[in-house]
Design a binder for these strands. Sequence first.
DNA 1: TTGAAAGCGCTAACAC
DNA 2: GTGTTAGCGCTTTCAA
Lengths: 333, 333
Amino acid sequence: MPVGIDDVARAAGVSTATVSRALRGLPDVRESTRLRVEQAAVQLGYAPTPSAVSLASGRTRTIGLLTPWVSRWFHSNVIEGACQALRVAGFDALLYSFQLDDDAAREPINLDVLRRRVDGLLVVGMTMTPTEVHLLETLGVPLVYVGSGPPDQVRVHVDDTVTARRATEHLLALGHTRIGHIGGYRTQPTAWATEICRAQGYRDALRAAGVPEDPALVSYGRFERAGGRSGAVEIFDRVDDVTAVVADSDEMAFGVLDVLRERGVRVPEDVSVIGIDGHELGDLIGLTTLAQDAHELGATAVGLVLEMITGTPVVRDVVCATELLERGSTRPI
Amino acid sequence: MPVGIDDVARAAGVSTATVSRALRGLPDVRESTRLRVEQAAVQLGYAPTPSAVSLASGRTRTIGLLTPWVSRWFHSNVIEGACQALRVAGFDALLYSFQLDDDAAREPINLDVLRRRVDGLLVVGMTMTPTEVHLLETLGVPLVYVGSGPPDQVRVHVDDTVTARRATEHLLALGHTRIGHIGGYRTQPTAWATEICRAQGYRDALRAAGVPEDPALVSYGRFERAGGRSGAVEIFDRVDDVTAVVADSDEMAFGVLDVLRERGVRVPEDVSVIGIDGHELGDLIGLTTLAQDAHELGATAVGLVLEMITGTPVVRDVVCATELLERGSTRPI
DNA sequence: TTGAAAGCGCTAACAC
DNA sequence: GTGTTAGCGCTTTCAA
């Protein structure tokens, strides 16, 4: 039943080596031979055994997707975009999702699982410590960071600093000065982390506008809705003159809206809220946001790894655009 | 640099066969030998080459996830749950996502991509034609259908008929009789499709309550928000005495809410809306729903395939519970 | 342009 | 208990 390369060879009256060459489109195969081989292959329904190909060639035609979650907006969209691009290219997607339980500790990534399994790796939406980055490099395969990554690595992302700055400027332009900020994580694994850059953007905007910073206006929400909720509670319990909030992700912004609604605070009449991401459901609730195209990021990243695998020089830093979507949750003070 | 099994064998002073046995925990290895081998392996940082293992053993320690989307609520949650369970079991997840463009045509699934690549397969949230089901069986690996599947196959799902019936009954109990229904797809690939069962549940509830069915109250929305929107428009343009709507997915319900808001119809004062799924953002907008635990479905399905792989007999049909979450979008007429 | 043959790194009989 | 020896199904020199 399982038809192998020598079945094809026999049927086509050539050697297995020739079958291998012919089917992979290598040069130095007479066109008539190639045709004969291809016909035999199709007729017998031959498909190479992946593990045999990998073992013999050292290539797996598989790209790993390293991600802390798959159900979050950013990650699921990047993964979907990447998957589709990989499928088109004839590559497989190996999904490595691991629970990122809390702020501080996370299970060490077991690289043995990746080793010799993938031709390349996409690191999707996660901040890695320099040690982890170094470890990943020992895999010896092309790496592309999606969402954020070390400056000296190949990456696809939006300009987090500029994006957060634009979000804050949008509120400043509306006359707000007491602007709360819900960041990602308080701890700072590395300088290039999304949360660091966005926090920087927030501060840059305030400074440029001559508005004093106030630590009481800042809290952290781990990029998730529940965190946005607790972060909002923190700020509103501490300060009572906040008129606007910028959340570093739409999911956290949803949490802010939760709290505001529970407290009977109207949006945008009493408080303006702006998020970052462009979550599809943001417009249902009327959340103004700075949108990025996560799907596109994933597809672009795949393009990059594949280029790196074939050795073609690539752009090392793809910065994608964000777009302000005004959907009603912000207004002049 | 790449350390192989014979490096370990040499270091431990045994043969490669013994290393293989010892490291895999097979019996008939002296405990002291096993220890020595394990130490050598750890010290050398040895990890078996996956493709070599696969080629020699015929097993891949990989489970395929076949899914039309990854960014939708149901799918991303099932995938995440499955991934985590697989990681714990030491299995890899190969993600096969393909665009399900429209109702009728979809690209034929290329099984060659799956063949000899996976030890088992999860079919996540998709209705397959009998032909496709048959094709999948030719893979010769355990199959588990998540969300819905042929009655004679192993599957993990909620009781769609009962779930939709309960949703409808909830509205009936509130006194509604002109109840719209937004289903999945109009076409019916197979009798066991989610959309068929949920439509049946809707009708069952009406019949049991003695409420006449009205085709004008029914439309289809492909389980997505945009479809829920167009479906709602269809119904409300056709009939003007609708007081409630049951949508077969929360994402479609969101679309219904879109339309209602645009038209200035208040929810639940003028129209009640209920969905199915338990989408996390449903409570932000106050959507009453019948919730299922998609994460759990994924994990359970992984448990099943793994059992099937090891040959242990399994429950063939796991039916998971749904829970009514009243969040404000329904009220007495 | 094609073929022969030597691996790729492991597992699994079978013998000891 | 442990070692020997064939493969698993391809790719890839090296010759021809």
